[in-house]
Write a protein that binds this DNA or RNA. Structure first.
Ligand SMILES: [Mn+2]
Ligand SMILES: [Mn+2]
Ligand SMILES: [Zn+2]
Ligand SMILES: [Zn+2]
Lengths: 121, 121
DNA sequence: ATATATATAGTAATGATTCCTATTACTTAA
DNA sequence: TTAAGTAATAGGAATCATTACTATATATAT
């Protein structure tokens, strides 16, 4: 994967937010710095950055969301405002139980807790 | 929601499999009994059955999958063969901790454990 | 049996994502 | 410092899941 200004910019955009943005949001931000970057380029680089382990992708729902935080963690999604926030859940014990009870080797854990965030009391 | 032969058939198709099928798979099965049922009808009824709590929908990945089992449970997805199987994870304790630590009311828990199933040893 | 409203089939539209291709721009080695 | 060689890009077309539209059909209450 050789250097490109576009990929660096896309990575910077993702690193600058905690909102778990969509590809289109990243595209719009990137265009502010590089007026004619294309949406295809954004998608291609998001895939490459994901494959390289430099970002994470969250595939729940009808649109993928991207995350600069590659340390394993899980998410709370508010069904009222749509905000997605981080939560740490230790999953070593769960993985071990799944291995024992189902003979299933867990590589990746995806938990989404849908509910109402503290902004709506 | 008034009776229709199409909705009954769609529900029957879902109840007859443990594969967590997609809308298109359900459509193809349904056509075997009702040759000109339309895909739009399948989608509309899947939504209605979901809203009525008669089936569940799994929204991980790029296609929704449907589940006759409405008792809360979670899923293992094999990245080799794509098979999706059920797993029971007690989540009451997790929900309580999320409430205390994040002031977030969890309504729905979606966990997917991606890995390798016992068919590939 | 009739009226009313809901559901359907068939088709068009949408929206996210992927694919295609001529051109551009990193990178490496003379 | 050039000049390949090749990976990456912009722009646009294509794909695929899902949703919207609409004229017709059907369920259900009276
Ligand atoms: Mn996160
Ligand atoms: Mn299930
Ligand atoms: Zn909220
Ligand atoms: Zn498998």
């Amino acid at each position: 994967m050789r250097y490109s200004r576009q990929r660096e910019l896309i990575h910077e955009v993702i690193k600058a937010t905690n909102t778990h943005p969509t590809a289109n949001w990243i595209y719009k931000q990137a265009r502010k710095k590089l007026a004619n970057i294309s949406l295809g380029t954004v998608y291609r680089n998001l895939d490459q950055l994901t494959d390289a382990g430099m970002i994470n992708v969250i595939t729940e729902g009808n649109m993928s969301r991207y995350d600069w935080n590659v340390i394993p963690h899980q998410h709370l999604r508010c069904s009222v405002c749509g905000k997605m926030s981080d939560i740490e859940i230790p999953d070593g014990e769960i993985k071990e139980k799944i291995k024992q009870n189902h003979q299933f080797d867990v590589e990746k854990v995806e938990m989404i807790f849908v509910g109402t965030c503290s902004d709506h009391n």
